[in-house]
Design a protein around this nucleic acid. Structure first.
Length: 464
RNA sequence: GGCGCGGUAGCAGAGUGGUUAUGCAGCGGACUGCAACUCCGUUUACGCCGGUUCGAUUCCGACCCGCGCCUCCA
């Protein structure tokens, strides 16, 4: 089965072939750790986790690197505002990021380089750029001279002249810049700011250099896939290409496939800090299982915008209820050696530029198959659905655990023991044909967010 | 000014030159003491105007509307 991926740089779907046989290298831009991550940050993490899972099924070795940006002016400002050391603050939010992403069933990447551990690699790359005439030193800064790169703009498909013409008033004018489009590779630090010794004095790196330097050090001069949000296409990834190719003399390709996920909107509006219309993953996890959030993020194709609403989450929850309903009393483990036409169908969807909405529809087709089947064949299909879910990072828990999940934010519902006691009381009432009493108990529990389901095997219960 | 994206049923969201996406919601039926779950059936679609075609939601062109980026951003 061939994998096809949409490549931003060529603006079309292409057959994926890694530069090295049997090995794939992938780099995804990770968070700047100055706050809890918001749902918009979570989208690429979940998307590229799904791609990582797909690639792992097709290649023996997948090196997936996702960086932690722990040197940044936003971090400096947040630490100052909190009266916290920069190191403590960035460590605290790195840990929180790991916890939140684990709740979304994302696998840890193979490598997670931190910017502050790779300053020397950045300095090396900057020196190479200076030696090759692509960068210059001015007033303690080092700047990349954009006009020295004839290829500049090839990812974002814009011409340098157009950019300047349209945005001249927005481009930062600075006395130390030769040309307005030049961007900072290194900047001086005052004593109260984080800084490292360098040939240009004590300072800190510009934003773009960390990714290209860490790719070069931890992966290879040419990697297969580089991912991130569409907002990173320009300037971040455009500048990475400039750095990553010019430091080698412009001969080597930096990245073969550029992949960018669409924006996440909130109730139809652009999510922005200034509008205050954003949710942290952490606060969403107080009300919804992480799996619901992951499912919601996968309902739209990754390149399309996704509108984040309460309805979206409620609908994702209902869809997962249906899937877990089909998995009750079935096997919970995953059997990687299993084959089935539905699994091939699912894999074909994912291999087609990560068509997750169609992949999800295969899960529902399987649920329908299961609900119409009895006995051994039913168990076999449940096993297939487990495998299918696993491919998407879904359906990893027991159905029982799923249906009895309670939001961390509210502990108002009855305990499991209380529910069981009422179910026993209701069973006795039913036995005595006292349906009024039985219905009253059911209504009372419904009122408390617990739904009862009678079956031949007895009464099951689920939390809403 | 430049570059790019989108408009599909009540909602979300795929896809296709003619034939069921899927989920949620709604309606009818089966099951049930009544429900819930599940199953069966079913109602609402492809922004507007032209063109190509036997046939267009799909291809082409124009138009309308909405959105994003253009050096903080996932």
């Amino acid at each position: 089965m061939t994998i096809q991926l949409y490549n931003t740089i060529n603006q079309r779907k292409e057959v994926f072939t890694p530069v090295r046989q049997d090995e794939v290298s992938m780099y995804v831009c990770g968070p700047t750790v100055y706050n809890y991550v918001h749902i918009g940050n979570a989208r690429p993490v979940v998307i590229f986790d799904t791609l990582y899972r797909l690639l792992q099924r097709h290649y023996p070795l997948v090196k997936y690197a996702r960086n932690i940006t722990d040197v940044d002016d936003k971090i400096n400002a947040a630490a100052k505002a909190n009266g916290e050391s920069i190191r403590d603050l960035s460590q605290r939010f790195t840990t929180a990021f790991h916890e939140d992403m684990a709740q979304l069933n994302t696998l840890p990447p193979t490598l997670e380089p931190r910017a502050t551990d790779n300053i020397d690699a950045m300095i090396e790359q900057i020196q190479a750029l200076i030696e090759r005439g692509h960068a210059y030193v001015a007033e303690g800064h080092v700047l990349f001279q954009v006009s020295t790169d004839p290829e500049y703009g090839k990812l974002s498909h814009r011409k340098l002249d157009d950019m300047i013409a349209g945005a001249s008033e927005r481009v930062e004018e600075a006395s130390y810049k030769r040309e307005p489009a030049d961007f900072v590779l290194w900047k001086p630090s005052t004593d109260d700011l984080p800084g490292w010794d360098s040939p240009w004095g004590r300072g800190r790196p510009g934003w773009h250099i960390e990714c290209s330097a860490m790719i070069n050090r931890h992966l290879a001069p040419t990697i297969d896939i580089h991912g991130g949000g569409q907002d990173l296409i320009f300037p971040h990834h455009e500048n990475e290409i400039a750095q990553g190719t010019c430091c080698h003399g412009g001969h080597e390709q930096f990245v073969r496939y550029w992949m960018h996920n669409g924006y996440l909107n909130i109730d139809g509006q652009k999510m922005s800090k200034s509008l205050g219309n954003f949710f942290t993953v952490r606060e969403l996890l107080e009300q919804w299982p992480g799996e619901v959030i992951r499912y919601a993020l996968l309902t739209a194709h990754y390149r399309k915008p996704l509108d984040w609403t309460g309805d979206l989450l409620a609908s994702a929850k209902a869809s997962l209820d249906r899937l877990y309903g089909a998995l009750r009393d079935g096997p919970t483990e995953v059997d990687p050696s299993l084959t089935h036409p539905r699994l091939e169908e699912l894999e074909a969807h994912l291999a087609d530029d990560l068509a997750t909405p169609q992949a999800l529809s295969v899960l529902h087709a399987l649920a329908g198959d299961i609900n119409k089947t009895e006995g051994e064949p039913r168990l076999a299909l449940q096993q297939v659905l487990r495998n299918a879910g696993n491919a998407l990072g879904l359906l990893l828990q027991t159905a029982d655990h799923w249906f009895k999940w309670q939001p961390a934010g509210t502990q108002s519902g009855p305990s499991a023991e209380e529910v069981e006691a009422l179910i026993a009381e209701r069973a006795a009432a039913k036995q005595a044909r006292d349906f009024a009493r039985a219905d009253a108990i059911r209504a009372q529990l419904k009122n408390q967010g617990v739904t009862l389901q009678d079956s031949r095997e007895g009464t099951r219960w689920t939390r809403d």
